[in-house]
């Protein structure tokens, strides 16, 4: 469990509201809702910021002014100058270039975490929603994972298995998976009793056709919304892990690593922490705004409430 998960969960009204049924509005209605929501200016600005970020990540090698891993011991902790637009870090690396290349890490971590946790969570959730015998065991296990504070689990995993991009990604995903499982399971349970699914069962539809054609489509809308929030919290988690020294190897240019490096020199060069911090915050804020907008659009029940 992490704080972001708490913030983005629908309100519980009693002890047994965990199995609430997300509605699946007809597509045209959902599209109209989305169009309405995306017309607001904060959402448009968020979208613009994210498009900009993706472009920066793609064209990083042209935008960077120097090699982000190149050390120059003679130019350590230099301030803002024409040669180093955002100064240099404690090893003389160009902060501007590192920040530009760092956008790649953040996007990969965010997108990777969202994709992996949704894929795994959906698979487990569908199994759990379908099989009564597996359900009890799976859900007890998920309860157990949820009980472990997400950040502690992540730093423990990274430090035990060894830090690289993949382990960081997995460590960030694991605390998110139970939430996806619960969501997917709830959708499966509510859809299972729908007349069209019962009709398909009566007609003798094969299992995998049933899952792909009739069950999974209903999970798409809520999972996209959930995926957006996972995207945002993963970027935040990467920066926190790197900052604590339990993240991606320090030479890799990532926003978290620039801040981790700047930690000791904070009093001397606050920009080393504040500038990448601003980038992380703007990115996460944009994604969260987008997630809110999509939830309002796709789930009209919650519109304007959360």
């Amino acid at each position: 469990m992490t704080l972001t998960q708490l913030a983005t969960s629908p309100p519980a009204t009693g002890p047994d509201r965990s199995v609430n049924d997300p509605p699946s509005p007809s597509e045209s209605f959902a599209r109209a809702q989305l169009r309405r929501v995306f017309r607001s200016w904060p959402v448009r600005m968020a979208l613009g910021a994210l498009v900009g970020l993706v472009l920066i990540a793609i064209f990083a090698s042209w935008l960077g002014t120097s090699d982000p891993t190149e050390l120059s011991p003679g130019a350590r902790l230099k301030g803002v100058s024409a040669a180093h637009w955002l100064g240099t870090d404690s090893l003389g690396r160009d902060v501007y270039s590192r920040a530009i290349f760092g956008s790649r890490v953040s996007l990969v971590v965010g997108l990777g975490a969202a994709t992996i946790s949704i894929a795994i969570g959906l698979l487990i959730g569908v199994i759990s929603g379908y099989s009564r015998s597996a359900d009890a065991i799976i859900m007890r296990f998920m309860d157990g994972v949820m009980a472990i504070p997400g950040i502690l689990l992540a730093i423990a995993l990274v430090s035990l298995v060894g830090a690289n991009l993949l382990t960081v990604l997995i460590a960030i995903c694991i605390p998110d998976i139970p939430r996806v499982v619960r969501l997917a399971r709830a959708v499966v349970l509510s859809v299972r009793s729908e007349p069209y699914v019962e009709a398909a069962t009566t007609l003798g539809t094969r299992f995998h056709v049933m899952i792909w054609r009739h069950i999974v489509p209903s999970t798409v809308a809520p999972l996209i919304v959930q995926g957006t929030f996972i995207f945002a919290s993963a970027i935040l988690a990467e920066s926190v892990l790197s900052f604590l020294g339990a993240g991606i190897p320090p030479e890799t240019p990532s926003w978290g690593n620039i801040m981790a490096d700047g930690r000791v020199y904070f009093q001397l060069q606050p920009g080393l922490i504040l500038f990448p911090g601003l980038l992380v915050s703007m990115t996460v804020l944009s994604i969260n705004l987008l997630g809110d907008a999509m939830r309002d659009g796709l789930d009209p029940r919650l519109s304007g409430r959360l």
Partner: peptide, 25 residues
């Protein structure tokens, strides 16, 4: 609500350092 979304989009340690910078230093 905007303030609320912002507050959990910023890494906690950034809030800490900004407070140190403003109120301590």
């Amino acid at each position: 609500m905007s303030g609320s979304v912002m507050a959990f989009s910023v890494p906690v340690f950034i809030i800490g350092y900004v407070l140190i910078l403003l109120l301590s230093r």
